[in-house]
Design a protein around this nucleic acid. Structure first.
Lengths: 211, 211
DNA sequence: ATACAGCATATCGTATACAGAATACTCTAT
DNA sequence: ATAGAGTATTCTGTATACGATATGCTGTAT
């Protein structure tokens, strides 16, 4: 069973990756013809990807003025964080079980996370992967899709933060606490730590973004 | 200060309205050239609108096969309902206050709702307006945007339901209970009734959709 | 030096063109 | 009459073209 993938999807991924690496930097314009030339495709799929990115909040679009990477705004962290924290908590609650195999994979990601030094984007990637793995058992696929797309917004801040403070690695301690609670079958505790970690993470990002 | 609006936005609205009225019916294909001809614009803005609608879950897009109105599926009601109920509850909690003026407007919408007979789409419109008005004070604009776009998915089911059972009007009783609780400053009670009403609504829709 | 008018250029939003894949159609063989 | 191969047509995804608006530059006046 073969299936062709739309160009716009690949273009979407490429642009997103660039933005996470900070190119172009926050505040700058994004010219569709530039991207089309760089990626070797026409403007059409590029614009489709840009339109999608601006619906998702990763880009801004002003009529007649094209697209731009919005400046980092502390307020956006809180807005998106509230939503994402709520939705990920919901996904956690909806997940029927956490088989040992999944918990092991979570531990493996944490170990990689601890070994990752210096590469902010890679670090943020792993953090994303951890959350994705934790929630992958949630049967509500639409919810998972929504979470993934919302996460792109926060990822921009997380990457910028990690680059800026040049922190060598994210702490995996709260991760481990959640894994332990789930292994013991203590959903309530897991939920609590998870929500608390979310709050802390958002506060940390916000404190940084507010200078 | 004048601002031109992108064609794709107007096209988006038109298509959405059609779908809510049940044309084209669930299951049928949507040809961009048809719409372009009918609306008197080119395929470009039409495709942009269709792409957006399929990202939002109102349409389906298969590569090489274009777009279609997905068949009504009971599972989708539960999936979207879980998300939307959670997010609207969040928005309710985040709203700092409910001035008397807003509560009066809610009452006015309810009265219109009671007088609306037979027009399913109009009825669903008013139900939407009620929720929109209830939550308009929430300072998290991104959350409100997200809620609006998610609501489009459920609206398709609500419209179809109202058309099918030919119910003359939605009950505004739970609405009134929420308004009363808010007037008394009893947020907890309001939250409770709200969440409960959500559950009941979803169950009702789902029971209908499952035949 | 600064601010502004006027022109040149770039870039956007939309329309159209084109190639290839999917669907519909026809004709034949059973 | 039905099923299936082969062809014609439609429609999609992507590329290109075009007109209009926004942006940037140059020169001049203050």
């Amino acid at each position: 069973m073969i299936h062709r993938a739309p160009l716009r999807d690949e273009v979407y991924r490429q642009i997103l990756e660039s933005i996470h690496h900070g190119t172009p930097p926050a505040g700058s314009r994004v010219r569709d013809s530039d991207l089309a030339a760089r990626l070797g495709v026409s403007r059409t799929p590029v614009r489709e990807a840009l339109l999608r990115l601006s619906r998702e909040g990763v880009l801004e679009a002003d009529m007649g003025r094209g697209f731009r990477v919005p400046p980092l705004a502390a307020g956006e962290i809180a807005e998106t964080g509230q939503i994402l924290g709520t939705l990920e908590s919901l996904a956690l609650d909806l997940t029927p079980d956490f088989p040992a195999e999944r918990l092991q994979r979570l531990g493996a990601i944490d170990r990689k996370l601890e070994q990752t030094r210096g590469d902010a984007a890679r670090c943020a990637d792993l953090e994303d992967e951890w959350h994705g793995t934790l929630l992958e058992g949630c049967p509500n696929r639409r919810l998972l899709d929504l979470i993934v797309s919302l996460r792109q917004v926060l990822r921009r801040y997380l990457s910028a933060y990690l680059r800026d403070v040049a922190r060598l690695a994210l702490s995996t301690l709260p991760h481990q606490k959640i894994i332990d609670a789930l292994r013991d079958g203590d959903r309530k505790a897991a939920h609590l730590v998870f929500a608390q970690q979310w709050r802390r993470g958002i506060e940390e990002l916000q404190a940084w973004a507010s200078r």
